[in-house]
């Protein structure tokens, strides 16, 4: 029941597959989440950004792979991702590809869960040597999931975080902050132009208590 002058609400889920604490993957995930929120704000939308830290669900993910059932906490995380209007997915690069923790989470998503879903991909590693993992490992995975992945993938090497203001001297790569913003703008544009119905948060539009008392159920 969104009125004409109601703000445009969009939910963004941010998945971080970092294993350590503190984690540079989490740092990149936070920066991307904030940037997407700002980009949506610039476009007149009200964004809520929800973080899913996979490290906290590692045990439950393993259990779910064996039993097929999600713990209540993991189900909240799965719902946050599936119920979002846009997903930011960030993983460390281990052995030239995404981590097992990240893949476990993708593996427990129901078939078609991310089909048509706007996605921004991010990755971190110690050096720039594994930059192509975003395009060679992550992108094909999300192509299989039929997600709509924005053109800019954000790879951050450890020393990128220290060079956010200037261009790295050994390279003509744009500074991390610029890449984060460009990717965030791309995701915001895709989220707002997406033909998918916006995700509905059942708590945003509760049936008024009076209506329930009068015997009327939720409006259909």
């Amino acid at each position: 029941m969104t009125g004409i002058d109601e703000p445009l609400r969009r939910r963004i889920a941010v998945v971080s597959a970092g294993l350590r604490n503190p984690s540079s993957t989490r740092l990149l995930a936070d920066r991307l989440g904030e940037a997407v929120g700002r980009a949506l704000g610039d476009r007149g939308a009200v964004a809520s950004v929800e973080l899913v830290e996979l490290r906290d669900h590692a045990h439950d993910l393993t259990n779910m792979l064996h039993t097929g059932f999600a713990s209540p906490e993991l189900q909240v995380a799965l719902d946050a991702v599936q119920g979002s209007d846009g997903l930011v997915a960030v993983t460390p690069i281990y052995s030239g590809t995404f981590t097992g923790l990240f893949k476990n989470f993708i593996d427990v998503l129901p078939e078609g869960a991310l089909a048509g879903h706007p996605v921004l991909l991010g990755a971190t590693a110690g050096t720039a040597r594994h930059s192509l993992a975003v395009d060679h490992a992550l992108r094909p995975l999300f192509a299989y999931l039929r997600a709509v992945v924005v053109p800019t993938g954000v790879f951050a090497a450890t020393d990128d975080f220290g060079h956010s203001q200037g261009v790295r001297q050994d390279d003509d790569v744009a500074p991390l902050a610029d890449r984060v913003q460009r990717a965030a703008r791309e995701l915001a544009d895709v989220v707002l132009s997406s033909s998918r119905p916006p995700a509905v948060d059942s708590f945003d539009d509760p049936t008024p208590f009076e209506q329930l008392l009068r015997g009327g159920g939720p409006a259909r």
């Binding site: 720039a128 594994h130 192509l132 060679h136 390279d171 790569v173």
Partner: peptide, 12 residues
């Protein structure tokens, strides 16, 4: 020109 393309040897 950039180490960012190192994985091309293994992936492509």
């Amino acid at each position: 020109g950039t180490v960012a393309h190192l994985l091309a040897i293994d992936y492509s």
